[in-house]
């Protein structure tokens, strides 16, 4: 099986890649945003604590 055949998916390439692409994009985005919000909250809280300790 050549790479072109694999991409073509027997004529169903559009559907298969649309479904896989959207799923992969959404799952990766979900994971990244979960991590990012965690890091943001930690950072904000740490800044708050530093400010408190200075006062």
């Amino acid at each position: 099986m050549s790479f072109a055949e694999f991409v073509h998916m027997g004529g169903h390439g559009l559907y298969v890649w649309l479904a896989y692409g959207s799923t992969i994009a959404v799952v990766v985005a979900l994971w990244l945003s979960t991590r990012a919000s965690g890091q943001r909250v930690r950072k904000e809280l740490k800044m708050g604590l530093k400010r408190q300790s200075k006062v």
Partner: peptide
């Protein structure tokens, strides 16, 4: 699912969407 699993005899390769759906 994308590479190794065989295509469905009726639905062909569009069947592979099952693995994400």
């Amino acid at each position: 699912g994308l590479i190794i699993a065989p295509p469905d005899y009726q639905q062909g390769n569009s069947f592979r969407i099952i693995y994400v759906h």
